[in-house]
Amino acid sequence: MMAGRLRRFGGMLLPLSVLALVAFIAPDRAADAVGTIGTSLREMILVIPPVFVLLGLLDVWVPRDTLIRYLGPGSGATGTLIAFLLGSVAAGPLYAAFPIAAVLMRKGSSFFNVMVFIGAWSTTKVPMFLFEYAALGGAFALTRLAVNIPAILLIALVLTRGVGPNPGPRTSGDVTPPGAPSG
C-alpha cells in the first residue's frame, strides 16, 4: 500500500523537480510557469467538484440496467446522441472526462458511445463553442464544428472497429477504485 502510494505520487515528482530546476536556471520562466499552474489549479478547484459529485451520484443512483438501456450496445443512434449531449454539456477539462468514462464503461455503456462522449467532451462543449464564436468569429467556429462532429463519430468508429474496447482489468479499477478504501 505504501509502495503503491509512493509510486502514485512519484509521477508528480518529475514535473515538480523540473520546475525546481527551471527556477534555478531561469527564474522568469519558472514564474511564468507558476502563474499558469495557478490558473489551471484554480480552474480545477472551481470547476471540478460538482463534476465529481455528479459522477458519484451517477454511480450510486443510476442502475446498470438503465445505463445499458440508454448507452449500451443496443441503444443505437439514440444512445450515441445521448453520449454526444452528455459530453457537450459537460464542464471541465478533458482529463476530468476520463474518470467519468471509466464509470460509464463499468456500468455497461458501449465502447463506441464512450468514445463519442470523450470526443464531444474534448471539442463540442457548448460553453467552449460560445467562447470560440466570440473570439474567432462564426465562420471559423462553425467550420470547426462541422468538421468535428463527423470527426468524432469517425474516430469513435475506427477505435471501436479497428482497435477494440480493450476491457482489461485496468480499465476501471485504476482510475476509480469501485469501493476500495484508498483514502
Binding site: 502514485r8 505520487f9 509521477g11 508528480m12 471540478i48 467538484p49 465529481f52 459529485v53 459522477l55 458519484g56 451520484l57 454511480d59 450510486v60 443512483w61 482529463y95 476520463f98 474518470p99 464509470v103 482510475v175 476509480t176 477504485p177 469501493g179 476500495a180 484508498s182 483514502g183
Partner: peptide, 16 residues
C-alpha cells in the same frame, strides 16, 4: 456512498 465515490475518484487521480 456517492460522496465517498466522488472523493475517492477525485483523490485517486489528483496526482495525475
Amino acid at each position: 456512498g456517492a460522496l465517498y465515490k466522488a472523493w475517492s475518484a477525485f483523490s485517486g487521480i489528483l496526482p495525475e
